[in-house]
Amino acid sequence: MAQVLVVTSGKGGVGKTTTTAALGAALARAGQRVVVVDFDVGLRNLDLVMGAERRVVYDLIHVVQGAAKLSQALIRDKRIETLYLLAASQTRDKDSLSDDGVERVIGELRPSFDWVICDSPAGIERGASLAMRHADFAVVVTNPEVSSVRDSDRIIGLLDSITDKAKHGEPMEKFLLLTRYDPIRAGRGEMLCVDDVLDILCIPLLGIIPESKEVLQASNLGSPVTLNNPKSAPARAYSDAARRLRGELVPLVVPTDKDSLLSKLFGRRAA
């Protein structure tokens, strides 16, 4: 029976889709059955980051509205056979998603997978609330930057009020994933450090993803960063976060991409 997690943030551009793809691929590489679901109706991008954009036929709305079966809409990853994508619709508007329909789809996914990862759209409107509504817990993606932290605080408030768990009086678990982190600048006091953000948001830390050119490189190529270059710093940070999701105790360090002397001499692996 799957655990359903929502990747959310409030603010756009902080790395929700990158995170969904990277965590999904890391879990699937460890043998878990994973489906990543794009809730950004009208502005889908998870298909592009996963490299499956040429293969989308049916999407979440087709399934919600009964125009396609779930099995027909799931797109199997070409690299890892336990990884699936359910795309969002590019042409419909977000009002086509009904709460009952989403609940039914998530209920249908649960028995077939170990993880259902819902990629929330930015904002706090319908798409974002539907993505979090039926989740068992949330990963709140935050940049060490004032507007992102503020928006994350708002999202944490919503997670505690509008989700099914909250409505049933159960605690809604939330974990912080700090992305685009630069330990050197944070050390110099030029960037909010981990403790600054934790002090404000007061939720447990799932991981710290360092700022890295590898993320753009991976999205250019349509490959989750944990698959594209598993040894890179962000990939190791995401893989550690995925292991924590599975309950492992993994020491929290911020990996770095060390440029070797050779790569400096012969030009950087430019993204």
Binding site: R54, Q90, L216, N220, L221, R269, A271
Partner: peptide, 24 residues
Amino acid sequence: SRKRSARTAQHRLQVLLMHERIAG
């Protein structure tokens, strides 16, 4: 291919957007 990732990105977008514009 890693060095040419921007070229790959451009090509992927051209193909995708060509299809999406027609699909409108």
